[in-house]
Design a binder for these strands. Sequence first.
DNA 1: ATTCATTTGTTCTTTATTTCACAATCCTTA
DNA 2: TAAGGATTGTGAAATAAAGAACAAATGAAT
Lengths: 213, 213
Amino acid sequence: MASQTVPQATAERLPLYYRTLQQLVANGKTRISSSKFGELVQIDSTTIRKDFSYFGALGRKGYGYDTQYLMDFLKKTLYQDELNRVILIGVGHLGTALLNHNFLKNNNTQIVRAYDVDPKKIGTKVSGTKVFAMDELAANDHHEIVAAILTVPAAQAQEAAEKALASGIRGFLNFSPTTLNLPENAYVRHVDMTVELQALIYFLNHSMETKNS
Amino acid sequence: MASQTVPQATAERLPLYYRTLQQLVANGKTRISSSKFGELVQIDSTTIRKDFSYFGALGRKGYGYDTQYLMDFLKKTLYQDELNRVILIGVGHLGTALLNHNFLKNNNTQIVRAYDVDPKKIGTKVSGTKVFAMDELAANDHHEIVAAILTVPAAQAQEAAEKALASGIRGFLNFSPTTLNLPENAYVRHVDMTVELQALIYFLNHSMETKNS
DNA sequence: ATTCATTTGTTCTTTATTTCACAATCCTTA
DNA sequence: TAAGGATTGTGAAATAAAGAACAAATGAAT
Ligand SMILES: NC(=O)c1ccc[n+]([C@@H]2O[C@H](COP(=O)([O-])OP(=O)(O)OC[C@H]3O[C@@H](n4cnc5c(N)ncnc54)[C@H](O)[C@@H]3O)[C@@H](O)[C@H]2O)c1
Ligand SMILES: NC(=O)c1ccc[n+]([C@@H]2O[C@H](COP(=O)([O-])OP(=O)(O)OC[C@H]3O[C@@H](n4cnc5c(N)ncnc54)[C@H](O)[C@@H]3O)[C@@H](O)[C@H]2O)c1
């Protein structure tokens, strides 16, 4: 199957391609060449053509790509043609911001439940999403939930992830600054803002050195 | 200089190494081997030794690495021995969460000012940080500011980045789901949660396929 | 002091990703 | 319908990153 031959680097670019195509279609563009598309996403046009080629011939020589067709193809490929249900654990500053955000609705992903340990938060609704106690997470059978968003303090992240895993969740988007230790069948993506900020500062300082020397 | 030979992939791992060493030192561990360290950060021990070797001989054969020494070394290498001042543009849900967060204090990085267009927010303080009007950003000389955190709506991100750039800021941590078009001397890191979530869903579905087939 | 176990630093190999270059193909227009 | 221009899809080459293997060096134990 395609899944075995699509490089990881390619797969990680697909969401960006998808979003950019959504914008093009919304703006009424019906066709685009790999070079124009490359300028938009700031990726070399060869890389884009090769990325698409892993899925077969999606374009037409001498013409380019049909935006609507390509968008629909990526929508299916990224499983965005069905609703993806996720939960959120840790309704603090960051968790509340995520609950208030609408990117989940725009992209066929929805936070269906939130969980916390704070009695003051349990039972309330944040932006329409109910907050439950952690016990209810452990008790539930979550086979229809694709992933858990972790926005708990670092010290509690491992414990929270294990509870979600025990309830049947295998996917994690971890915002805590800590490495999770989970079995092989779990899949974690780590959004680590401390790391990003430090990497930014490192590269800024080093690009200066390169220019001065 | 080292800056020209350190691979990008290595540089991006340094913040994770640094944070993990901080924890080890805090827990009283004085030494660690590359293999033990590798388990902690979930990276192959060879990769870790190779990463460190770009900076010279940081360990001792038959002994391992001195945690305090290595931590101090990375602290300097990552410019965490001096205060890094940043600004934040867009005091909305996400911006407020970031302002409330303390990761900036822990890591010698500080949001010194915030900017917004909303008259209701201008002049207020969020978690001790003053909110200014965008005009004041344009007027300022920001040579002592290393970076701007962008938490404005996607449609306003380019404009906000250009204003910051005009005031002398070259580094950007962009949380908006849009690609920024900036000159070469600017450096952008993109934290894109929509992309992360879609990539997570993609890999989850594909790891299932691999197992079933 | 000598032996032995440990662990680094590094060379060499393998794998992954990007980029080059161009024939094949399709659109467009006259 | 034929010619010319545009643009894809893809092998082959180049670059980057990760991993295996091991000699060299050190620490610890006796
Ligand atoms: N706020 C930010 O902007 C920001 C930025 C970067 C990283 N982070 C990380 O995101 C995480 C959350 O940050 P925050 O600022 O929202 O913190 P917060 O303290 O505001 O919120 C944490 C929430 O988790 C809940 N919680 C604590 N232990 C729990 C447990 N065992 N199970 C379930 N819920 C539990 C708390 O009741 C609280 O509601 C932290 O790991 C932080 O480092 C936050
Ligand atoms: N909230 C989240 O959890 C979340 C998650 C992922 C991505 N994002 C992205 O982060 C960005 C901010 O999200 P949010 O939920 O905080 O939105 P928000 O609407 O709550 O906040 C946006 C803020 O930016 C200000 N603003 C608008 N135009 C501006 C301009 N030209 N200059 C300066 N300030 C301006 C607004 O006044 C507002 O305070 C968006 O791009 C969003 O897609 C947010």
